[in-house]
Each structure stands twice: as C-alpha cells, then as structure tokens.
Design a protein around this nucleic acid. Structure first.
Lengths: 210, 210
DNA sequence: TAAAATTTTAACTAAATAGTTAAATTAAAC
DNA sequence: GTTTAATTTAACTATTTAGTTAAAATTTTA
C-alpha cells in the first residue's frame, strides 16, 4: 500500500525528526508563527511536547527552519530560469508561470504563508529575503532589453514583472475566499490552475505583442 | 495646523471610541488576530487597558468590528460597478482596476489583512464573505456574455476574472517583500501604483482583444 | 459648584502557552 | 541478555496575555 499525502503524519514511516518537520510545516504554514501552537505540532507529529523540545529547542528555531525552507521554495524557482542565457524573454515568462503554478499546486500553503509572515513582520523578512530576490532584478533587466529591441511592446518592465508574478501567485493567496465564495472543490481548483498555465501564457503573450 | 495621517492616533482630536477603533484598525491589520495584543491597541490609542475593555468587552468583539469593516472595503467595491447596466465589460474592468488600486493606496494593509485571516482561519471567513462575493458572479456572467458576442477573445471567464483581480490586488500583498528586495520607498511604490492603473487597463485590453 | 460621567491607577485573576525536569518505560544496538 | 539510546509520563515553572476590580482622580454637564 502506497503512502498518500493524506496519510496522517503521525502514521507515516518517517524518522522522528522528519515527523516533527512535517508537522511543523503543516501547522506553521496554515496558522503562521503567532497562530501556531507547539502542542498542535506535537499532536500532529504523534509525539509529546517534551520530545518536541528535545529535538528542537524552541518554537523560534523550528519556525526559522520551516520559513527558510518555504521562502526557498518561493524565491529560488527563478534561479535556474534566469541564469539560462539560451532562453528568450517569452520562454522565461512561460517557464516562470509553469514553475510557480506547479510549486503552488504541490505546496498550497506556501505563498500565503510567506506573504503573511512578510506582512506581519516586515523587519524580520529583510534578513531572509533580500538576497534571494536579487536574481529577479536580472529578469527585469532582460525585459528592458527585449523592450529596447522592439521584441515586446513598450512597457515599464517593473510593471510587466509584477504582472507575471501577480497572475501566477495571487490565485493561491485568494484561494480560500475564492473556493468558499464560488463553491469550488480542491479538485476543481487544481484543474483550474492546471488549465491556467496555458491560459496565462496566451494572455500575457497577447498583451505584450508589439 | 492640519492633522495629517502621520499624527499619532493618541494625539488626534477624536472621541475615545474613535481613537480605540483607529488603534485597533492599525494593530489588527498589521499583526492579524493572533499577532495583535490588546495592550498594544491601548497604547496606540493613548489609553489604558481597563478603558479599552470598558468600551469593547473582548478582543474578539473588537476584531470582528475591524474585520467586518475591512472586508467591506475589500468586497463591496464592485457592488455599484457591477449593478450598472450601462457600463460595457471594458468599462467595468477599468472601473474595477481603478477602484481597487485607489482603495489599496488609501488602505495599504487591508488586502494582506483580509487574505491573511482568510488563510489562517478558513472556516471563520465563510460567515463573513460568502454573501459579499455573490456580486462577483454577475461580473463573470457579463464576461461570458461578451465572449459569446465576440466582443472579447474566447477565454475562460473565470480565468479572466482571476486575472483582473490578481493584477490589481497582488502588488499590495507582495509589497513588503517587493519594497525590501528592490529598495523601493513608500512614495515610489505609490507612484508605481498610480501609474499602474493606466498600465493595467492597456495590458488587459491588449490581452482580450479578439 | 454639585452631580454625573469618564478615565486612570494599580493591583489583581484566570487562562493559555512555551519550556523544563526527572523518573519510568520502551526500543535498539551490542 | 545487558547496555545504550529514544520516548513517554506527568508534574512542574515561567511568561505572556486577556480580562477584572474597586477606589481615586479628572473632566464634563447641569
């Protein structure tokens, strides 16, 4: 019998450390730092609070580990894409869209988690995120270059970058409101996001055509 | 001397109840329900905790008041636009963009606040938000109609609706990351958002042209 | 000015939660 | 089978935070 993602963390064949990390991932990404409870993490991992503190000294240490991991998933997506000199601007946009949507389908809570913590604790994020975002500047520079060459319509490249990110990421932030408001199931939402990859590429290509 | 928005709440000529509400607005929208402290609200209002509880019995009651107000600002924007039978689809999109961006410039913390609470407490939002969103279905229906009439390119109208919302709202959610990562001041950010109103209308119109 | 309403003071209580401890139990390794 | 490591138990402590109380001080109103 294959272990699915719905198998409770406590019952999975994982080391205790892995069970704790999986539980912490689940609780922190759903509830945030201030909303998460160490007892809830222990319960979800199927262990007790004493052992939880034996493995990870404090809530803060455990949170840091999870946030670091989540922000990497959020911001390291572009590293390989942007570095690739062979890709055209249009190919980069396509790859960005597909990679972000795939990541968010696989990790549904990460976008809202990272954005939420960044908003509730703006000073804290500076240490974590500033370095990881420098790569994105290269993408904006590439946009500028393509505009100068007449490959895409004259536009503020920062606005274009914001557009691509918005279109890919926002649905996963508004997701609970959207699903509740329109009565959409998880399966329907994921199907919409699968369809969205192609839809967005067409939408953006039409918008930037010179 | 004119009172600016930078005048501390505690020093403004407001009734005590108004001072409390202004302080609660400030603290809750920045820190969220679980991150907010009643003591911080009292401090920001320039009063003490006893008086705070004298006016609003509990944190929950005060939060409900602020969240209700914030979600109204977030979701009642479209009511007048969508009801207006005289507006074309393109005019509605333009109005939606302008109204959302204006609201978010005037209330910078509201989008991330409402989205954050919805994500951290999905059950809670159902009571609040489901009714307010029904209007949005009419807009999607209008999109569908315009597609059938060939006025705009064949598209999934739900995707188009998601696109318009994403483009207008997401920048205000990613704002702290964007400003920290790219070294953008508040003034520069607001200028970019002012420019964005026109930019987005052009971007979307190009994307949906049949 | 006297009475009434508002606000402060400061010391409380109650509850929730992070984190600790030491002994007992169980599982793994040798 | 004995030793060692991992885990549980359960009762702790310390801290934070929501919420209360009663009396005193202040401000407003009549």
């Amino acid at each position: 019998m294959i272990k699915t993602e719905n198998t409770p963390i406590a019952e999975q064949e994982l080391s205790t450390e892995e069970k704790i990390l999986a539980a912490a991932r689940s609780v922190f990404t759903k509830k945030g730092m201030s909303g998460a409870r160490m007892q809830d993490i222990a319960d979800e991992a199927g262990i007790n609070k004493a052992l939880l503190h034996y493995y990870f000294r404090s809530k803060e240490k455990l949170f840091d580990r999870i946030f670091e991991e989540a922000s990497n998933k959020m911001f390291s997506i572009l590293n390989s894409i942007i570095a690739d000199e062979k890709l055209s601007v249009r190919e980069k946009i396509k790859d960005l869209i597909e990679n972000y949507i795939n990541m968010a389908i696989a990790n549904p809570y990460i976008p809202a988690f990272v954005m939420g913590e960044a908003n509730q604790n703006p000073d804290f994020i500076k240490e974590y995120l500033i370095k990881k975002i420098s790569v994105h500047k290269q993408l904006i520079a590439h946009f500028q270059e393509a505009i100068s060459l007449g490959e895409i319509k004259p536009t503020n490249p920062v606005q274009l970058f914001m557009n691509v990110m918005s279109l890919a990421v926002f649905p996963f932030i508004v997701r609970p409101i959207f699903q509740a408001g329109f009565g959409v199931t998880d399966e329907q939402f994921n199907a919409l996001m699968e369809q969205r990859k192609k839809h967005l590429v067409e939408f953006i290509m039409a918008a930037i055509k010179p």
